[in-house]
Amino acid sequence: MSKRILVVDNEEYIREVAQICLETVAGWEVLTAASGMEGIAIAIEEKPDAILLDIMMPDMDGIATFQKLQENEATRSIPVVLLTAKVQAADRRRYEALGIRAAIAKPFDPLQLASQVATALNWSL
């Protein structure tokens, strides 16, 4: 069954490339948001199966966005995978402690992106 996934990144090109990758490779439906606030709004509205979240965003960063999603009844159960340049061991431990499922490094491999998300969330492609 096809998945609906929300990509939150302030960089227009990265949203676009991620969207094309996921749609082309996995056939998922991809929603995009350009900021944390927009991402939360869409998540509440659309209830995606997972959220792919950038960390370094101005105003509200990925971690703050994640925490807001956790505080909200409607979005609490949506699994979140980070898309970030910061994937050092220490960073991963920090993400885990926060309850984030996985972190995928930027730049990502366009052909592997979907399977990386699927593996992290125990989905079958």
């Binding site: 960089e11 090109y13 991620a18 094309i20 082309t24 730049p107 491999d109 052909l111 992106l113």
Partner: peptide, 9 residues
């Protein structure tokens, strides 16, 4: 990331 992703695709 954009370059790598788009060219890879």
């Amino acid at each position: 990331t954009s370059i790598h992703g788009s060219l890879g695709m």
